[in-house]
């Protein structure tokens, strides 16, 4: 069992590493090949305030006078040793820019994740155990949540709670209350699919014969839910966690812009407008790393949580 699991974990980790590398290559190709010579364009931009010597140094560093494949090799080599390069706009190390922005985004995303999970569980439980009238209403909530773009949610929350009720001010976006509302903005679209999947698997599990048998042993609704239904219903959502983290990262671009927070999302936005290729490359690749790592964790966790999953079969899948 343990050696089987070890081999399974190793195989999965290997696949994850390959995916990260390929994601880096894909991002590099999209950024540097598609638009032609964006990087030198932005360097030559007189507003960049770079001297001819600076430009020479940067061209040298990124191998810009060489073929794309060589540039890719250079860039990938540095990525593998943990070096992320320098911003074309500010000339600061990318690692520093990302490092400065990270705490804010982490706070936002983790708060949002917690809120989303609470929302989803609440909706799913209610949809299952509330009186039929309320349950029907709760069942339609995910669909509604999914139909509202998160910039609309953000603007409505700001309009209501900042401008009318003065619960927080937009001038202090890092206050606890402001962070909370930003997190809610980010959480709502994420909680909806989670709730849908939870509702569906609760429906599925409670229709299984074992639920009937457990009821015939005198378990009441709450006992049945807690002892029998929670675990099998939650398993499909474990596999969704990586997707949700990806959503949180993508959604943070908009949420941070609306709430005026300085985080990874803002870094991305600035990098896009300023055609700051190294910054963009780094943020996107790091997002892929986060995604793949979370996915890997979920994969490795599943056989431990679900006795049905056979690691030896899963390793070859």
């Amino acid at each position: 069992m343990t050696s089987g699991y070890g081999r399974f974990a190793l195989a999965r980790a290997g696949q994850a590493a390959v995916v990260v590398l390929l994601a880096y290559v894909l991002t590099f190709l999209v950024i540097s090949v598609l638009p032609g010579d964006a990087i030198t364009n932005s360097l030559r931009d007189p507003q960049s305030g770079l001297s001819e010597a600076d430009i020479q140094r940067i061209v040298q560093y990124y191998g810009l006078d060489q073929p794309v494949l060589v540039q890719l090799a250079l860039s990938l080599g540095r990525f593998l040793t943990g070096e992320l390069g320098f911003s074309l706009q500010s000339n600061l190390p990318v690692a520093q820019i990302v490092g400065d922005a990270l705490p804010s985004t982490l706070t936002l995303a983790s708060t949002a994740l917690a809120i989303a999970v609470v929302f989803a569980i609440g909706i799913a439980y209610g949809a299952h155990y509330a009186p039929p009238r309320w349950a029907g209403l709760l069942r339609s909530i995910p669909s509604f949540f999914l139909s509202v773009p998160n910039f609309v949610i953000g603007l409505v929350l700001i309009e209501l709670f900042a401008f009318r009720l003065h619960a927080f001010t937009t001038t202090d976006p890092n206050s606890a209350t402001a962070t909370l509302f930003a997190a809610v903005t980010l959480a709502i679209p994420v909680s909806a699919p989670l709730a849908e999947v939870l509702i569906a698997s609760l429906d599925h599990e409670s229709r299984q014969e074992y639920a009937l048998v457990a009821r015939s042993r005198g378990l009441d609704g709450a006992q049945l839910f807690a002892r029998h239904l929670v675990k099998p219903s939650a398993l499909p959502s474990v596999a969704m966690v990586a997707l949700i983290v990806g959503e949180l990262l993508g959604g943070s671009v908009i949420t941070e812009t609306i709430f005026g927070r300085d985080g990874i999302g803002t870094v991305v936005q600035k990098a896009v407008t300023g055609e700051d290729q190294p910054v963009l490359q780094a943020v996107v690749s790091l997002s892929a790393v986060v995604f793949v790592a979370v996915n890997l964790a979920a994969d490795l966790l599943t056989p431990l949580l679900d006795p049905r999953v056979n690691v030896r079969e899963a390793a070859n899948a």
Partner: peptide, 13 residues
Amino acid sequence: PQDPGSALNPVRS
């Protein structure tokens, strides 16, 4: 029940 294969919770011992 009819089908012993589905009459016990698959994720509990």
